[in-house]
């Protein structure tokens, strides 16, 4: 592990400890929902990281198509894998929160649906990568899929204006009535910071791993040629 990663990991862990302190010991209970509302501080940062991760996949896919640098493809793939993990956490923490508050695990509301669709798109992206053997071809097809898949997300969100939503409107920057008391907002931002930095650490580690995998593959191919 390099020193940059060590610093980033320490920052992320410190922020996570601070988040735990704020969430469980410092901030007051939410009036109507009680303890379960505290899941908000992990649910929203996970959703944020998932969206950032898939955006990075789309951007890195575009850069791969422009440059054909295999490293860009590694960043795109790594980011999609991590994005799937965090979006899976969103889809787990969401129902855990919804059940006691709404009385149901799931509703086909636009925000839930769009998160699920995003998750399915990048799951398909990863499956595609698994099922195309040749490396350059895999990189190009994945890049195109990553870009087109990402384009669908804002369109799903547009449906929000047409269909009524049960999911609360964005509490941050969601209109005149929205907004959190400063301490709640600060707590949320600590969570966002912690998980975003953690995402960067994971991403860097995964890309290094992918570089090694590719190097091993090349060595094996070269060795196979020598024996033949």
């Amino acid at each position: 592990m390099r020193s940059t990663d060590r610093i980033l990991l320490t920052l992320s862990a410190a922020a996570m400890l601070a988040l735990c302190y704020l969430v469980f010991l410092y901030i007051p209970l939410e009036k109507t929902q009680g303890y379960i509302q505290k899941i908000f501080y992990i649910h929203v940062p996970c959703a944020w990281v998932g969206f950032v991760a898939f955006t990075v996949t789309a951007i890195m896919g575009g850069r791969y198509l422009a440059t054909r640098d295999p490293d860009h493809d590694r960043w795109a793939a790594a980011s999609a894998e991590i994005g799937i993990v965090f979006t899976t956490l969103v889809l787990i923490t969401g129902p855990m929160w919804a059940r006691p508050v709404w009385g149901i695990w799931w509703t086909w509301d636009i925000r839930l649906t769009s998160t699920l669709v995003l998750w399915l798109i990048y799951l398909a992206y990863l499956i595609l990568r698994q099922t195309v053997a040749e490396r350059d071809r895999r990189s190009v097809l994945a890049a195109v899929t990553g870009i087109i898949g990402w384009l669908g997300v804002p369109i799903v969100y547009l449906g929000n204006r047409v269909r009524a939503s049960q999911h609360p409107a964005p509490v941050v920057g969601g209109g005149e009535d929205s907004g959190l008391a400063p301490i709640f907002l600060a707590t949320l931002l600590v969570g966002v910071f912690s998980l975003t930095v953690f995402y960067i650490v994971l991403l860097r580690a995964r890309v290094r791993g992918a570089r090694l995998e590719d190097a091993i593959e090349e060595l094996q191919i070269a060795e196979g040629r020598d024996h033949a």
Binding site: L120, I127, T131, G149, G159
Partner: peptide
């Protein structure tokens, strides 16, 4: 686009709906 993409995957005809259906979600809904 995805008809060509899926042809190049080992899963071929399975890959097409896997790729297309989630991306088509807003169109189907509308």
């Amino acid at each position: 686009v995805f008809a060509v993409v899926s042809q190049k995957s080992r899963l071929r005809e399975v890959m097409l709906p896997v790729l297309m259906l989630p991306i088509l979600a807003p169109m189907v809904m509308a």
